[in-house]
């Protein structure tokens, strides 16, 4: 999931994904400055049972990571679309978010 503001987007997982993964116990976030390609495994979320990759939604450079979620992975479950964000990325292409599914469409496919 990515939320954009200008050319910087905040990346995280949806409430639906958090529910599917179960309680997250460990977060491995990308490094600030890392250049990500769309579709690349950028973060790793570990639940009690399994490890899951989080793929970069767009091309760009990581500008910030959420240290709070690394210290307290439970934020991913309690507030995935708020305090549980993973990292911020400067979009290589400012229009990259335009073609993405919006929240209403996402809600429809995950019903």
């Amino acid at each position: 999931m990515a939320q954009g503001d200008g050319d910087v987007a905040t990346v995280g997982i949806t409430a639906y994904a958090a529910d599917q993964l179960g309680d997250i116990v460990f977060v491995e976030a990308p490094k600030v400055g890392a250049a990500l390609r769309k579709g690349q495994a950028a973060a790793m979320l570990e639940s009690v049972k399994a490890a899951s990759d989080v793929y970069a939604p767009v091309d760009g450079e990581v500008t910030e990571v959420n240290h709070a979620v690394i210290a307290e992975p439970a934020l991913l479950n309690s507030d995935p679309q708020g305090a549980g964000w993973l990292y911020q990325i400067r979009l290589a292409d400012a229009s990259a978010l335009d073609g993405m599914m919006d929240e209403a469409a996402y809600a429809e496919i995950t019903k």
Binding site: G22, D23, V25, S47, V48, K49, N77
Partner: peptide, 12 residues
């Protein structure tokens, strides 16, 4: 059943 609404961590 792999888990219930409580979730693996809290069930444990």
């Amino acid at each position: 059943p792999i888990s219930y609404p409580l979730g693996v961590l809290k069930e444990h």
